[in-house]
Amino acid sequence: MTTVELLWNGLAAFLTLCIFSFLYKDNPFYKFAEQLVAGVALGYWTMLLYHTTFTDKVLIPIFQQGKLHYILPTIMGIMMWTRFSKKLAYLSRIAIAFYIGVGTGVALPLYMYNYVFRQLQATVVPLQFSWLGLNSLLMVSFVTCTLFYFFFSKEHKGTFGGLSKVGIYTLMAGFGASFGLTVMGRVALLVQRIIFLREYFIALFGS
């Protein structure tokens, strides 16, 4: 490592330790690192949005390519800012109405197709006499039972109650598996940071 690299990595190691210091208790070092991340993240995404949206989709189309219809969404965008004025705040509703209108209009058929029909299509597959076929059968049963569990218009009693119980067991097994996977992902990140600190201190003090 060169001196400059040692210096910058030293800063990264210091900030990493600042964040890990939260394991002891909330302290000024952690708060400093937390606010630093918040400020840098906000500034980063702001500038990325500025370059990818304001420059590429507002400034260049209007002033360089002469696409004047882009002025309309720009005006609507500026209307959003009227929320800061009590007198003119109602104007922001027009922009919000457009935003919500486009969002819901696009979501209605897309969600029905992707989230309902495609999921059902993937669940109900031709049966085979194999382990795969058994899993497909289990998948149909588990999905149906879980949907029964989420159906609250009928009391969960008798056969319906039994099926909905299978549904909640499926949910618990699924949540447990997701949880296990998340823990392993976080542990992998932790291992990465510990390796970084180890390599830095080896470079600094020697092995």
């Binding site: 979501a107 309902v116 999921q119 588990f142 999905v143 949907l147």
Partner: peptide
């Protein structure tokens, strides 16, 4: 199997809710 089944049922519910 159980994880995908649970997620699928939740996703179907979300799809109907959004619609």
């Amino acid at each position: 199997v159980p994880n995908v089944a649970a997620k699928r049922a939740i996703v179907i519910g979300v799809g109907l809710g959004v619609a």
